[in-house]
């Protein structure tokens, strides 16, 4: 029973470490600056492929000193397969809404539209069709943000 009495401490320590690990798991694959809004940087944090669908996650950070309103129409975002000279737009659901988030405004199929305070960040995600020609890398284009080039697609 002496060993059993130490188990709660062990379990809570493990849970704490797992929580901390999840917090540290903020990998950044590539960062780009927003050209249209001062002090805004966009991190590409995840690229996943499943069922021929590419899921991208981003973190939009305000590294400036002023609060900024960031608007990204999802209709203007696309993924480019430069090797085969093709581009692909975000997938749309049966109502014509882009499968992306957050959907702060539904106009034009939906858009990211959030106020970001200095030092704060907001997340964004989007789902694209995987290019059928299976390129090794793609370029991700988001309106107002410098392109994310040579992004490796997982196999």
């Amino acid at each position: 029973m002496r060993i059993l009495s130490k188990i709660p401490v062990f379990v809570f320590t493990l849970l704490f470490l797992m929580g901390a690990g999840a917090g540290l798991a903020g990998e950044v694959i590539q960062s780009q600056e927003a050209e249209s809004v001062d002090g805004i940087e966009v991190d590409l944090t995840s690229v996943k492929m499943k069922n021929d669908i590419v899921t991208l996650k981003f973190k939009i950070r305000n590294v400036g000193s002023k609060s900024q309103n960031v608007e990204i129409p999802y209709k203007s975002c696309f993924l480019m397969d430069e090797t085969n000279q093709k581009k692909y737009y975000i997938l749309k659901d049966s109502d014509g809404i882009f499968i992306a988030g957050p959907l702060n405004r539904r106009v034009g199929g939906g858009q990211f539209s959030l106020h970001i305070s200095p030092g704060k960040s907001k997340n964004m995600w989007m789902k694209f069709p995987a290019p059928p020609d299976n390129p090794e890398t793609v370029t991700i284009s988001i309106e107002g943000v410098l392109p994310f080039e040579d992004v490796k697609l997982p196999k």
Partner: peptide, 18 residues
């Protein structure tokens, strides 16, 4: 969602994408 402030991907989103 990635670490930070923002939404998680809703559970049905991938099925909608398929």
């Amino acid at each position: 969602g990635p670490t930070g402030d923002g939404p998680e991907i809703p559970p049905g989103a991938h099925e909608k994408a398929i």
